[in-house]
Simulated scan of single mutants.
Amino acid sequence: METGRALDAAAGRLSLERQLTVREDTSLFATHPPAGLRHRMLGARPWQDPAVTLTEARAARIDAELARHYERAGRALSWHA
């Protein structure tokens, strides 16, 4: 829900920001095209259903698998803060 509100709030300036990235972030030395060009490319493609979907059960298994890593990172951050 928060993501939807954030996108709604930013909708007016997103196209301007994408244009700006095309002008300012284009480089022969960049490893990826700027966000504005990637958005144009993806927007020009027809919709495809995703080949892989994340179910609630699978997300819970992934979270459980990563939980100890999250805890370790949290401890490291609090130790160094």
Rank of each mutant, 00 (worst) to 15 (best):
V52I: 14
E17V: 02
L54V: 10
R38H: 04
W79C: 03
R58W: 07
H32R: 13
W47D: 04
S27G: 12
L77E: 09
R61C: 01
P34Y: 04
A44H: 02
T31M: 11
D8V: 07
A59Y: 05
L20Y: 01
E65N: 02
R58Q: 05
A64E: 03
G74E: 15
H39P: 00
P33L: 13
V52N: 13
L28C: 10
G74Q: 15
P33Y: 09
T21C: 01
L54Q: 09
L77R: 14
D25Y: 07
A81H: 10
A35I: 04
R45L: 08
L77V: 13
L20G: 00
R45G: 00
W47A: 05
L16E: 06
L42N: 05
R23G: 08
A10S: 14
A59E: 03
A6L: 12
A9R: 14
S15L: 15
G4E: 06
Y70M: 14
L7D: 04
A11D: 12
G4P: 02
D8T: 04
G43L: 01
R75C: 13
R68A: 15
R58H: 11
Q48V: 06
A6T: 09
M1L: 07
S15H: 14
P46Y: 03
P34I: 05
D63G: 01
A10T: 03
W79Y: 03
A81Y: 09
A67C: 05
L7M: 10
L16F: 04
R58Y: 09
L28F: 08
A57N: 03
I62Q: 00
H69R: 15
R38M: 06
Y70H: 15
S78M: 12
E65C: 01
L37Y: 06
V52M: 13
D25I: 04
A10E: 12
E56W: 05
R75Y: 09
S78L: 14
W47P: 14
A67I: 05
A10D: 10
M1C: 05
R58I: 02
T31F: 10
R13W: 14
E24F: 11
Q48N: 03
A10V: 04
W47Q: 07
R40K: 08
R5D: 13
H80L: 08
A76F: 13
A57K: 08
E65I: 02
S15G: 14
R45C: 01
L7R: 03
L37T: 11
A51W: 09
R75G: 07
A51Q: 12
Y70G: 10
D49Y: 05
A64Q: 01
L37W: 10
L42I: 01
T55V: 06
V52E: 13
R23M: 12
R38G: 00
L16N: 04
G43R: 06
L77Q: 09
E2T: 15
V52H: 14
P46C: 01
R40S: 10
T21K: 04
D63P: 00
T21D: 01
A67T: 07
A10R: 07
G74M: 14
